[in-house]
Design a protein around this nucleic acid. Structure first.
Lengths: 215, 215
DNA sequence: ACATAAATAGAACGGTTGTTCTATTATTTA
DNA sequence: TAAATAATAGAACAACCGTTCTATTTATGT
């Protein structure tokens, strides 16, 4: 089940090795702390040797973000597409999202780090973050639209609002986990997600669910 | 209506001036980028002159975070306490939270920056962040509990779950605003908040609200 | 195997980092 | 106003930053 390219040139090989360390480091210490020297030592290279692979620190940062997103898609998003269209797929996208750090062996999420680090600092790095996040947002919106099409969600459900709230749940889950060290974080996120989907369900189903604890 | 101390010593005065610049800088560029040199230049001081006020970079970071939290309480949280107990107060806490950056003239939120920057990096700075955020979380929980006591919220409403989701809405609002530049961000946050409170309302009210668009 | 190209090392660059000194001013207190 | 104290400046420190060179080693295509 090895997914990609058959043969890596020496350059591509070490580049991948560098990005492995870089993704890990960026998540924990941020993209600005992604220094050439530290990274070179961590990868067993000289500063100039590592530098030659990217040409500038900024390009290294962008390459690291790209790699993080690539991994997210590989271990979380794409696998969720094998779930049947509609609510179940949406639910799997959500579950995989919550688990993607453990799946890829990361201690912290580089995407979230990049998000807050560059959301108010114009430049190529910010542009890259915006592009990636917009795309992810669009995927969620599309997933909701599909759930409307299957008839599971109400026709007047609001995909953009759904995506907005979904991002919020993920954010809060990360804070609960890594800042508050709350073991119930994932359960709370699940509960929030269920409440979110319940409010989007087509009417007959929705009533039956909101009333399931009538007393 | 000038709230605090009558007279500032020269030291306290420049310290406040430094922290003004520091809070602004930390929000945009992060707490690690809170360098002595840049900050000294920005405040019109020598490096060593500024340094003497804090003793270490770490203490400067902590002082900056403390100042940011103090301001948040001053312009957002405390003013919301004059709203009547219960849902209306909770609603005002939420509104003021969404507006506190403009109210204090900040371009980015230092608390959120600190949150993602130190959530996975042990040390005194992380401890300070955790403490502040736990306290804020506790205030929200207490606000929900009050709304239960007034009878507005159902007796089985879950204050911790409410706080969890509230944090998520705020987070998502910031991303929508500053990363996506979405002018509808605040409106979406409001809508999410209304949906959140609706699901916590005492039964009679809740039914009347969830059914307000029966068709 | 050999020529060509790619990958890496090492030294050096000016600049900045946090921090520690010693002086020298300002400010407060008596 | 004089003495004591606090606030600030300036120079120096080793350590690191990103980047640019020139060599030298290693991998690649024929």
């Amino acid at each position: 089940m090895s997914s990609q390219s058959a043969k890596l040139s020496k350059g591509e090989e070490t580049r991948a090795l560098i990005l492995e360390a870089a993704v890990q480091h960026a998540g924990v210490h941020g993209f600005e702390a992604l220094t050439i020297g530290v990274l070179a030592e961590q990868a067993g290279l000289s500063k100039s040797g590592l530098f030659a692979h990217f040409g500038s620190k900024e390009e290294l940062q962008i390459a690291t973000l790209d790699e993080a997103v690539r991994r997210y898609n590989e271990v979380a998003f794409i696998p969720a597409l094998k779930a049947p269209r509609g609510l179940r797929r949406l639910s799997m996208v959500f579950d995989n999202w919550l688990q993607w750090l453990e799946r890829s062996g990361l201690k912290a999420c580089p995407m979230i780090a990049a998000n807050t680090e560059f959301d108010d600092r114009p430049g190529p790095m910010r542009d890259a973050v915006v592009q990636h996040m917009q795309r992810l947002n669009q995927e969620i919106i599309r997933g909701v639209q599909i759930a409307i099409d299957t008839g599971e969600f109400a026709r007047d459900a609001d995909p953009e609002q759904f995506a907005f709230e979904l991002f919020g749940i993920i954010s809060s889950c990360y804070r609960s986990r890594y800042l508050f060290s709350d073991p119930a974080a994932s359960a709370r996120a699940r509960k929030a997600f269920d409440r979110l989907t319940a409010s989007s369900l087509a009417r007959p189903e929705r009533e039956s669910i909101t009333r399931r604890t009538p007393k």
